[in-house]
Design a protein around this nucleic acid. Structure first.
Lengths: 209, 209
DNA sequence: TATATGTTTGACAGCTCTGTCAAACAGAAT
DNA sequence: ATTCTGTTTGACAGAGCTGTCAAACATATA
């Protein structure tokens, strides 16, 4: 058997084209609102071919889901382990997530939809990961206690996540009302937020009231 | 014709029972994921009766939608017009929204789903209302400029909305990881947030860096 | 009692969606 | 040329969902 790989790619990998099309449609119209025909059309293949690649709609959805989910939990341990100030670590964390969402604008919505459709599945998947892991959580609690004992870690973490994630969830709203529709205005606006989020959170810590 | 009203209500108003059931299902499973049969079962009537009350699924959905939407835009002008400090007004605003969402826990998700399903419809409906109205917006801009000229109103408003709304959108997550599943823990947690949100936002203003 | 109005239901027609199959097609290996 | 593998497609069967209709039912009025 002669090894004759790398000959595929008609124009661009069909499987990836399907995943891209499916992701977009699943996010916009939901799992049930999206028909296999829609995905096939969008990927420029026949619906039967779609079934050839992903046997069923459920399987396709799961493929899209896990593909997205894996991106959602970048290892924060690297950030946590660094011997730098709390503020610097916070900055890195915010950076990482804003960049992630800018590169994958549909990720937050996708995750929130699933969270409400099937909370138990999502909670199980999230359990012990990232900010929800015991280790990270306890470290944040310890550091916060030193700086401002009256500020509960739960609220601080929720503030952090809210400020990072919500603008993407409400993106059409932000685009329409908070920025003036210039080209690339949204990503510019988000990059401005990096410093704003860090400042806001830091001063909520330092504000020993 | 003798006026013989108020004789209906078998046990409780059927129409309202339908709306309640439909709201819950539409939020959890989406418009397309919800079948008329599901709603009928949940409201304890036959599917045909459901059609009798709301001719079509679309009409039922719209009824639910506008019923929800109307709650979503409490008149903030009353708050804006009061001659009180900025902080006091901010507090009233946060109060009003947290109470609203506590009483209608599915509202934020419902609105965000629709925002992504049909952004133009939502933007049109929101335009000029509440925080997005020109009047309110300019007042906030003016007041902020006096206190901290380097803080843009867009970011401030987005921070405010993020901190108020996101915890409800991610509610299952908050319940699972940030509070320890006690009875009424969520609403208690949210009431704690009232002061935290106001403090956080105020100190982001005062922090003239 | 008879009649009118409002409500509920079972049955049906029509449509849409999914998933399968067998056949056609393309290209590489023999 | 033919054989084999992987890909694409049209056609079909089956299931589920919506919306309508006519008939039954309940209740109040005349």
């Amino acid at each position: 058997m002669i090894e004759s790989q790398e000959f595929q790619e008609p124009l661009v990998n069909t499987e990836q084209r399907i995943l891209d099309a499916a992701k977009l449609l699943f996010v916009q119209k939901g799992m049930d609102g999206t028909k296999m025909q829609d995905i096939a059309d969008s990927a420029k293949i026949s619906r039967t071919s779609l079934h050839y690649y992903f046997r069923s709609k459920q399987k396709l959805f799961e493929a899209v889901f896990y593909d997205q989910f894996d991106r959602f939990l970048p290892r924060v341990t690297k950030i946590m382990e660094q011997e730098i100030t709390f503020e610097a670590r916070l900055g890195q964390f915010v950076d990482k997530y804003l960049d992630l969402f800018l590169a994958n604008p549909y990720l937050p919505n996708f995750m929130m939809n699933e969270l409400n459709r099937d909370p138990e599945k999502m909670i199980e998947l999230f359990a012990g990961e990232g900010l929800f892991s015991k280790r990270v959580r306890e470290q944040v609690e310890g550091e916060l206690r030193l700086m401002n004992p009256s500020l509960e870690a739960s609220h601080f973490i929720l503030n952090l996540i809210s400020l990072c994630v919500f603008p993407f969830i409400a993106r059409p709203m932000v685009k329409a009302f908070l920025i003036n529709g210039e080209k690339d205005a949204f990503s510019h606006f988000i990059r401005e937020r990096r410093a704003i989020i860090v400042d806001t959170l830091m001063c909520s810590i330092n504000d020993a009231k």
